[in-house]
């Protein structure tokens, strides 16, 4: 697959998203502490890490859905902490996000789902809305499914419709939360190709959260590996494969036990069995 950087993506300088010394805690439990991440313009950047390391939380920080306890989050040159709700909504018009389950509006059909952002944010005449929607649906191969309801779509189709909806306002940044989870190999291949082609053809910057090492190896330009609230490794997928750090090796090789233990912290096994204690 050839990667072609779009002229628009080349126009900007510096990272499109920048997290500096970010700390975030939930109920006193730290999720991130001193997190530093930089997302280059025009690239596909992957965020990987074991389950529970806060990958989705990181996306919520980048989209301004939550605010860090410490540190700075900058997206498209805007410091999110300085934005009020209107400012945040203005910034989000430049972003698109694809949720794990597609998050299509279940009372609207495919066509209306894709048209939704246009109807909410523009005064375009119906003929222009129709053309834009059909073009986006054609791009994801679902023009023929325009009048289907979300309940009639497969998982892969839902994600393709969600992708069409995410790009209908021509955003600068596209964010994908686990876009490959639960897909069959054909649907996975389709979504993988669409993410790459959409990024390159529209000159976007894409952030993909996933723990599928194999797929990310084919897709990402740059990868961050998170563990214990910090970046433990970064680089191209090939560089991560060669990284000797135990936690990186365990994740990339898919080993069950290692620095990320198989067992959740628990009292002594023998003592608990002999005492026949019921876990409190």
């Amino acid at each position: 697959m050839t990667s072609v950087t779009h002229p628009v993506a080349r126009a900007g300088t510096g990272p499109l998203a920048h997290l500096v010394d970010v700390a975030y805690a939930v109920g006193g439990r730290p999720v991130f502490d001193g997190l530093n991440i930089s997302i280059a313009r025009g690239s596909v950047t992957a965020i990987m890490g074991p389950s529970g390391t806060g990958k989705t939380t990181l996306l919520r920080l980048i989209t301004g859905q939550i605010r860090p306890g410490r540190g700075r989050v900058e997206v498209a040159g805007e410091d999110l902490a300085a934005l009020d709700t209107d400012g945040l909504y203005r910034l989000r018009r430049r972003m698109g996000m694809l949720f794990q389950n597609g998050a299509l509006l279940t009372d609207l059909d495919v066509y209306e789902n894709v048209a939704f952002p246009l109807r909410e944010h523009t005064q375009l005449p119906e003929c222009l809305i129709a053309r834009t929607v059909l073009m986006k649906l054609q791009a994801v191969g679902l023009r023929g499914a325009a009048r289907l309801m979300p309940a009639e779509l497969s998982g892969g189709m839902s994600r393709r419709v969600a992708l069409a909806r995410a790009i209908v306002m021509d955003p600068e940044i596209l964010i994908y939360d686990e876009p490959f989870a639960g897909l069959d190999p054909i649907a996975l291949g389709v979504v993988l190709r669409l993410i790459r082609e959409t990024n390159d053809a529209l000159g976007l910057t894409s952030i993909v959260v996933s723990h599928d090492v194999h797929v990310i190896g084919q897709l990402a330009d740059h990868t961050y590996l998170l563990s214990s609230g910090k970046v433990v490794a970064e680089g191209s997928p090939a560089e991560l494969e060669r990284d000797p750090a135990p936690v990186v090796h365990q994740f990339m090789a898919g080993e069950a036990d290692g620095p990320v233990p198989f067992h959740y912290p628990a009292p002594d096994y023998a003592a608990q069995l002999l005492g026949a204690e019921v876990p409190a």
């Binding site: 859905q65 989000r92 996000m97 949720f99 998050a103 299509l104 509006l105 279940t106 939704f116 909410e120």
Partner: peptide
């Protein structure tokens, strides 16, 4: 159910206020 299936979050991400819409 809209909240449980991320539809409200999706609206927020599309810069649409779910309370208004």
């Amino acid at each position: 159910l809209m909240s449980a299936t991320d539809q409200l979050s999706a609206m927020e991400m599309m810069a649409v206020d779910p309370v208004r819409r």
